[in-house]
Every structure is written in structure tokens, then in C-alpha cells.
Computed example of a mutant assay.
Amino acid sequence: MLEILNYGGALAGVAGAVSLIIASIRTNAARIWKDEAEAHKARADRLIEELEEVKGKLSDLEDKTQVLISLLSAIDPQKLEGLQTGRH
């Protein structure tokens, strides 16, 4: 009977150690996933900033293009018409 209790105590110790290891793995995995999520959010925030910058530059180019079209049409309307229809 004493031998069974010794084995039972050893099994309880092993079960406790295994549960501690599993808890440690889960905690570490949660931390890793959290770190990954934060890294992805930071990258997304940077991409949003870059996209806003590109959109601003595109808007500036569109404005400058309109000015150039106005200048060109004032100087040579036929040349402008040729550019718009694909004839150079």
C-alpha cells in the first residue's frame, strides 16, 4: 500500500510539473501573439501614413497637370487637342 502512495505522489508531482510547463507555454504563446499583433498594427499605421502621403502627392500632380493643360490650351489649342486624341 505504501508503494502505491509513493507512486501516486510521484505521479502527482509529474502532473504538477506538466501543468506548470503547459501554463508556461500558453503564457509564452500569448505573449508572442500579442507582440506579433502589435508589430502588425505598427506596420499598418506606417502604411496608412505612407498612403496618405502618396495621395497628397497625387493630388498635387493632378493640380499641376490641370495648370499645364490650361497653359498649353492657351498657347496652342490644336496641340492640346492632338495630345488628347493621341495624335502628336
Results as ranks from 00 to 15, higher is better:
residue 69 I to L: 07
residue 14 V to C: 10
residue 6 N to F: 15
residue 88 H to M: 14
residue 18 V to A: 10
residue 33 W to H: 15
residue 11 L to R: 13
residue 85 T to R: 10
residue 76 D to V: 04
residue 68 L to Y: 00
residue 53 E to P: 08
residue 44 A to P: 01
residue 57 K to G: 02
residue 36 E to A: 09
residue 32 I to G: 01
residue 82 G to P: 01
residue 52 E to Y: 15
residue 80 L to G: 03
residue 88 H to V: 11
residue 28 N to P: 13
residue 23 A to L: 12
residue 24 S to Q: 12
residue 34 K to I: 08
residue 72 L to Y: 01
residue 42 A to C: 05
residue 11 L to P: 09
residue 84 Q to I: 04
residue 55 K to C: 10
residue 61 L to E: 03
residue 88 H to R: 14
residue 61 L to W: 04
residue 1 M to V: 09
residue 38 E to G: 02
residue 55 K to M: 11
residue 17 A to Q: 09
residue 77 P to A: 00
residue 59 S to K: 15
residue 18 V to L: 13
residue 57 K to Q: 08
residue 19 S to Q: 07
residue 74 A to L: 06
residue 16 G to N: 03
residue 86 G to H: 03
residue 69 I to G: 00
residue 37 A to R: 08
residue 65 T to F: 08
residue 70 S to D: 02
residue 2 L to P: 13
residue 31 R to G: 10
residue 62 E to R: 10
residue 42 A to I: 01
residue 70 S to G: 05
residue 23 A to I: 09
residue 66 Q to N: 09
residue 13 G to I: 01
residue 6 N to S: 10
residue 22 I to S: 04
residue 74 A to G: 04
residue 50 E to Q: 01
residue 43 R to Q: 08
residue 29 A to Y: 14
residue 45 D to M: 06
residue 23 A to E: 05
residue 38 E to Y: 13
residue 50 E to K: 11
residue 53 E to G: 08
residue 10 A to L: 13
residue 70 S to L: 06
residue 41 K to W: 08
residue 7 Y to E: 05
residue 51 L to N: 14
residue 79 K to Q: 07
residue 43 R to H: 10
residue 30 A to S: 08
residue 29 A to V: 02
residue 45 D to H: 06
residue 81 E to N: 04
residue 43 R to C: 07
residue 72 L to N: 05
residue 40 H to P: 11
residue 63 D to S: 06
residue 80 L to Y: 03
residue 41 K to Q: 04
residue 14 V to S: 10
residue 78 Q to H: 08
residue 88 H to E: 02
